[in-house]
Design a protein around this nucleic acid. Structure first.
Lengths: 198, 198
DNA sequence: GTCTATATGATGATAGAC
DNA sequence: GTCTATCATCATATAGAC
């Protein structure tokens, strides 16, 4: 199921990452993890203390991956508007939802400080990163002075996270795309130049 | 635990509503439902076909309640901007999240058309209702002509849903409030008059 | 390191007494 | 209608062979 050169530990982490994305922490059993990884029960308890410990390794890696993906869009070409636009419009497997954000609906994740921390840090970093870009644009005169960088950044991130909710409810990516274009169009009203795609 | 005059069936639905909100469908066991309702196992299987059937009754009622609450804010005093603002800023138990939206992260809910339907219908109605209000405001000249009612409505609903995600990750209502004020401030840029709270 | 028992409690549902 | 068995299966973890 995984590359031949992948270690047992790696296979366990990868299968856990997939299952956490699909079914969350509560909905993922050690048995399901082992079957997908193609290893026996003993291997899991040799490499990890238990389900939570393995989940922590998986969540940390997923958080790191998400951060890298977002950074690619946010550090791309163009001004502040263009980079936020690139983040909002980047390709996504919308119906799968956000592998980090979905964990916030898992009470067992939120109740465990160790599991919650990478989730919080990732979303908090994302908000701060976008706010910083918007502040930059503000200083460059790209937006009018009324733009609130923190509020706008939070709205942008929330629109993406909530867009997943709407899309999964509808079993269609359409509401996600509508929401993301909607928030982008609102941001356009705060730009001083005619932005790309407006 | 519940009112003396509440029927057994009512007690079961209410305890299921609470548990679905707190722990989702996968995370809620019949046993937990029965204990909270204070009834025996036989009663549940007498009144309902099983866990899914009871969850369906609970979800339908929660969906109806959410719709009524939203409608109260959206049909209040003032123009389109004021009513959308009232919806966004209404009091919420932010850290509990949305009892309807959280179900979209439950794979067993999304996989069952009967359970998914009320979730979809509620969020779809909300988007349509807000879009209609914005179109009204557009016709009244309350917004400039560039405002996209459908995109803005989707962004508003998504911001609320995503705001819950950010708040739960942070274990603080602050990011929710920031996001909601952020999207409202963006909407302000599309108004033709000086709106309330701008 | 990895595997296969084995153990204990939870899950989701049924049977049948009252 | 409601209750208490009872049931097969699953969840999570441990023990110990190889």
């Amino acid at each position: 199921m995984y590359s031949e050169v992948m270690t047992t530990s790696e296979r366990l982490i990868e299968s856990t990452r997939e299952l956490l994305w699909e079914r969350g922490f509560t909905g993922t059993s050690p048995k399901a993890i082992l079957q997908r990884a193609g290893v026996g029960q003993g291997s899991m308890y040799h490499h990890f203390a238990g389900k939570s410990d393995l989940a922590l390794a998986a969540i940390r890696r997923t958080a790191q991956t998400m951060r890298a993906t977002a950074e690619t869009a946010l550090s791309g070409e163009g001004g502040a508007y263009d980079r936020v636009r690139a983040y909002l419009l980047r390709e996504r497997d919308v119906l799968r939802g956000c592998p980090v954000g979905r964990l916030t609906m898992d009470p067992d994740v939120i109740a465990d400080p160790a599991l919650r921390q990478p989730v919080f840090e990732t979303l908090d970093w994302l908000r701060g990163r976008i706010a910083g870009i918007l502040r930059e644009g503000l200083e460059q005169g790209e937006f009018d002075a009324e733009l609130d960088p923190d509020g706008t950044a939070a709205a942008v991130v929330a629109t993406v996270q909530g867009g997943y909710v709407l899309a999964r409810a509808a079993e269609s990516p359409a509401p996600f795309d509508t929401a993301v274009h909607g928030v982008l169009a609102l941001l356009t009203a705060r730009t001083t130049r005619t932005p790309h795609g407006a």
